[in-house]
């Protein structure tokens, strides 16, 4: 058997894949957080709840209406994005002038309500969501067996991340967003409807979280609390990356996911704290974060 650092290659690559999958979710979630924070200056504590809502949207669309995975992949983010737009319009928009901590506290309360509500109706245990037929099964790569769905998640998240990056960096809408991140008042004085842009941005961030949630549904179970511990890890990732750059959020997400996977191989006891440890180290060495621009 081939060994790498005294670990069987199989196990090593298996954990690497698990890390890459986790990294895919981390990247999508920290990307959404960074976009929202960039423009709204709100740390969206409800991000984990919106991720969970995405997974539930997929589950409920299937069980109530028989809508399959592929349509849910579009409909779920739209539904969650719309709910985000409502929240932004009627609540968050009233908090921009205050200390940014109030945005964090409000979305924290929102997360409690959403998660508590789903738990009330669906209990704490997970609901299974079947892998779509097209993506079930696996392929033998010679050195390891890879479930097709997992490969799909990695590819899909890369497409989503790069697509979002292109949207922000290369399109007209993206230039509005970047400009408004720098100086919203001036951009609005140019005639651009910045309040609407803020609503759209929050909806986009929430929609991204929901998309991640649906992608996650067949891998993890669909449960009301699936996002609540995850969001804290994503916060740590965001502290490591610094929220100054979209690409930074994406890269940090993948990197830390893989690192976490590798920790599972070499020192499993530390695997669920490794990201926090890295956060602490980064705070000592480079407090602004790896890609951070703000002090």
């Amino acid at each position: 058997m081939t060994m790498i650092f005294g670990i069987p290659l199989q196990a090593f690559l298996g954990q690497l894949l698990v890390g890459l999958i986790n990294g895919s979710f981390y990247a999508m979630l920290s990307l959404g957080l960074a976009i929202i924070f960039g423009l709204l200056r709100v740390i969206n504590f409800a991000h984990g709840a919106q991720y969970m809502m995405g997974a539930f949207a997929g589950f409920l669309l299937l069980s109530w209406l028989g809508i399959n995975y592929w349509f849910a992949l579009i409909l779920g983010p739209v539904i969650v994005g719309l709910s985000g737009a409502v929240v932004e319009r009627f609540a968050l928009s009233r908090l921009y002038k205050l200390d940014h901590l109030y945005g964090l506290l409000f979305t924290f309360g929102l997360a409690l309500v959403i998660e508590g509500g789903f738990r009330y109706f669906y209990g704490s245990s997970g609901q299974p969501y079947a892998t779509p037929a097209l993506l079930s099964g696996g392929v033998n790569l010679g050195f390891m067996y890879m479930p097709i769905y997992r490969g799909w998640v990695v590819v899909a998240s890369l497409v989503v991340c790069i697509g979002t990056w292109l949207l922000i960096e290369k399109t007209k809408l993206g230039s509005y967003l970047r400009a408004a991140t720098e100086n919203p008042v001036l951009v609005q004085s140019f005639g651009i409807n910045v309040p609407l842009l803020l609503t759209l941005t929050y909806a986009l961030g929430a929609g991204l979280a929901a998309l991640a949630g649906i992608l996650a549904a067949p891998i993890y179970q669909v449960s009301p609390l699936m996002g609540s511990n995850l969001i804290i890890v994503v916060f740590a990732i965001v502290v490591v990356g610094g929220m100054g750059s979209i690409m930074g959020a994406i890269v940090t997400g993948y990197m830390l996911g893989i690192l976490e996977g590798l920790t599972k191989v070499f020192y499993p006891e530390a695997s669920n704290i490794v990201i926090f440890v890295i956060m602490a180290i980064v705070l000592l060495v480079r407090p602004a974060g790896l890609f951070g621009r703000d002090a």
């Binding site: 230039s175 970047r178 400009a179 991140t181 720098e182 100086n183 008042v185 001036l186 609005q188 004085s189 140019f190 005639g191 651009i192 409807n193 910045v194 309040p195």
Partner: peptide
């Protein structure tokens, strides 16, 4: 509202110029 003023046909060039660092010159 603020974003309708410009649409009446006023172009504002602020004192601090307001050039955006994350946008190219053409953007």
């Amino acid at each position: 509202p603020l974003h309708h003023t410009a649409r009446t046909g006023i172009g504002y060039v602020p004192e601090e110029r307001g050039i955006f660092a994350t946008l190219t010159v053409e953007e």
